[in-house]
């Protein structure tokens, strides 16, 4: 046994090094995919919503700071999407319905941002919003006409959009909650509606209690 102490040391070292690699490679077993890593990182970093000009479904143009002092719950989508986005917006509507009315418009605004700047003109958005029961005021749909601003936002919030070239995009989806100061507070799974609604309500309630 003693005569191969070097072997034993080497084996222990290999196990320790390997475990460290796996541990740091997955942020302490939290993230096996980049998507989960991204969410984890966003929660750690809480990036600031960058300065952008929005153009909404009513053709109004204003900076994001319009929503200052309100929470903003955001999704990223495009109207031509046939798979994820309809589900995403449906679920978004369900969350909207679950938020007590007293908060809506006062403390929180819903905002769906399209990343298909070319196609999703205000008229298209206006049409699209109706199918989900959005009122166009407390839940607005908007595009960011300036491509550079859009790209910057997507990068900051870790939204990945790969154009497929035929008018479609591959993209990731989630609910993003931005706080009153414009910082990203939470990223939530868009498939877990009840959980997301609960989280938002508890954030709002907690503030009201203070």
């Amino acid at each position: 046994m003693i005569k191969n102490w070097r072997n034993v040391v080497a084996i222990i070292l290999a196990i320790v090094l390997g475990s460290l690699l796996i541990y740091f490679g997955t942020d302490g077993f939290h993230a096996f995919t980049e998507e989960s890593a991204r969410t984890y990182q966003l929660h750690q970093e809480k990036p600031l919503f960058p300065r952008v000009m929005l153009e909404d479904n009513k053709e109004r143009v204003y900076p994001f700071s319009e929503f200052e002092d309100k929470y903003v719950l955001i999704t990223f989508f495009y109207t031509a999407c046939t798979d994820v986005c309809p589900v995403l917006e449906m679920n978004f509507a369900e969350v909207y319905d679950q938020i007590p009315e007293k908060y809506i418009g006062e403390d929180i605004v819903f905002l769906s941002i399209s990343f298909d700047t070319k196609h999703d003109k205000p008229a298209v958005l206006e049409n699209y919003r109706k199918s989900f029961g959005s009122d166009g005021e407390t839940w607005r749909m908007a595009r960011i006409p300036n491509q550079t601003e859009l790209d910057n936002l997507l990068k900051k919030f870790g939204v990945i959009v790969i154009p497929e070239g035929n008018g479609h995009f591959q993209h990731n989806s989630a609910f993003y909650l931005v706080n009153r100061k414009g910082y990203l507070e939470k990223v939530m799974d868009y498939e877990k509606v009840d959980e997301a609604a609960q989280t938002v309500v508890s954030v709002l309630e907690k503030e009201a209690g203070e």
Binding site: N7, I22, G25
Partner: peptide, 26 residues
């Protein structure tokens, strides 16, 4: 340091496992 090959193979397993994570590839 690696007379029986075990230490080496353990590292091999860990590194290849790491590279099988979708995240590592991304």
């Amino acid at each position: 340091w690696d007379a029986n090959g075990i230490a080496g193979i353990i590292l091999v397993i860990f590194i290849t496992t790491y590279w099988m994570f979708p995240r590592a590839m991304d």
